[in-house]
Amino acid sequence: MIIFIFTAFRYNVGWDYQAYYKSIQYGLITNIVSNGEYASIFLVDISRRTGITNLYFFVNAFITIFLFSKTIKEYSKDNWLSLIIFLCFPLFYLNSLSVIRFFTALAITFYGFRYIERRKFIKYLIFVVLASMFHKTALIAIVFYFVYNLNLKISKLVVLLTLLPVLSILFNKAIIRYFPRYMVYTQLTSIQEGTKAIIVLIILAIVLLIFRKKIICGDTVVNGYYNIFFTGLSIYLMFSSQGTMGHRLSLYGTIFSILLISEVLSKLKINRDRFVIKIGIYLLCILMFLYTVYIGSGTYIPYRTIFNIY
């Protein structure tokens, strides 16, 4: 019941709303319907035929919220903490209000983690392919199946991070030559998404590197979170000076921070320390949420804070 209520208040906001609305209502040919993402095209078609434009947004919202909620409930050591981080961190839930079909794809691959854990590649591949029918970028999540069991030591991570700029150049050349339609996502730009929020993820990465052994403690699942998170962060850093490519693709991995943070806190033996840190995280999350909504009040339409009341 809570999911249905939550979804009803979520489905019609964000800076991409007009593009989606016009594609459905007026039959405009945009990348929403021209990229061959068949699940998204199907929902657009159903919305057009029924005359219920917001049906598209509601279905995507329900899929996103349901799959994230279910995965958090099953895998997080602290459900409320993970949920608050998901809702308040600017790159996660608030971002889903705009990049709608992308977050549907992200939710499906996130839910599919259970098949990485169980080492059932075919089932995981089915979920990734299904996700790619909403947004093709989901195909990058196939990599997570193969990094899950790796022993990513600090020295190896440092070498990898050092090589990222070279890999970025090679990747860009391949995009320009073979996939020119996607050049817009890799073009150099001074305006990027998530440039401030990524600092929080980098700080988290430093903590994870320092306390790696204590956090993982031989737990295969936590090691999987760890590897997937760092794969996502590496993708962001690889394209840190370019368009939206890094920000978007990295989310398939960095979203696992909502599970990792709960794991980090669960390793603290003193309850008082855990309580103090948790309160600090809650306060930080609330501040990030209010800041994001306040500076983006024209973007996140339904949200108002006490600073917006006249």
Rank of each mutant, 00 (worst) to 15 (best):
K153A: 02
Q25G: 10
C88R: 01
I72K: 08
V159C: 04
R248Q: 06
I199D: 01
T64P: 09
F62K: 02
Y21L: 14
L208N: 03
D273L: 15
V158I: 14
V13M: 11
K173C: 01
C217P: 07
I24Y: 09
S47F: 13
K173L: 07
I258E: 06
F256T: 04
D78Y: 10
T305F: 03
L208G: 00
G296M: 10
R48T: 15
S47V: 13
I210R: 08
I169E: 01
V99E: 14
A131K: 08
T292S: 00
V143L: 09
N60L: 15
Y225V: 00
L94T: 07
Q192L: 14
K213V: 04
D78G: 00
S241Q: 09
I41E: 07
G296V: 03
N149S: 10
Y226H: 00
K267N: 09
K123C: 04
N149P: 01
V276R: 05
F92N: 05
E263P: 01
I142K: 00
F62M: 13
D45V: 05
T195S: 09
I210T: 09
L130Q: 09
A205C: 01
L81K: 10
G36F: 09
L43T: 02
V184D: 15
Y148Q: 02
D45T: 14
I63Q: 01
I261N: 08
I122R: 03
Y300Q: 12
Y145S: 03
K70V: 11
K153V: 10
F179N: 14
R181A: 15
